[in-house]
Amino acid sequence: MTLKTITLTVNDMVETVDVPQNMTLLQMIREKLSLTGTKNGCAAGECGACTVLMNGEPVNSCMVLAAECEGANITTVEGLAKAGKLSKLQDTIIQAGGVQCGFCTPGMLISATALLKRNPNPTDTEVRSAIVGNLCRCTGYVRIVDAIKMAAK
């Protein structure tokens, strides 16, 4: 199978990568760029652990082909903290205690970051709807929802 060469921006860095044509964006991020913060939980667009921002909008990176990402702008969990300073949401999820095993956390942070960007003052229902595609088995979502509301204030 021939490789495809693509150039894209990931966490503000321009990257040129040779990717197999059946490679997903998730696989590219983890295997080609070694950004292993983004997780694979189902490879079927259901669990949300692989959520990244693509051109500012959250997507399941397991549902995107790397080959179609020419020119795309991707943000992963590693790109949320700027110059060593945690984002507000990273801070509030720590304060609220919204992290347990941590496997859903990267995707959860990305979904919540996107929510607060499009809706800075979400209601409880809006917060919960925004993360319906991010499964968490540890927390019961209680402190995750708290953290998102704290960050919105």
Binding site: S34, T36, K39, Q90, G102, F103, L109
Partner: peptide, 23 residues
């Protein structure tokens, strides 16, 4: 005391290492 977890910084920045993350 309700201290913050000691593994949480790595977990919110994506730097915590899980088995599939080893290179």
């Amino acid at each position: 005391a309700s201290f913050t977890r000691n593994d949480v910084y790595e977990k919110v920045t994506g730097t915590a290492i899980y088995t599939d993350d080893f290179q």
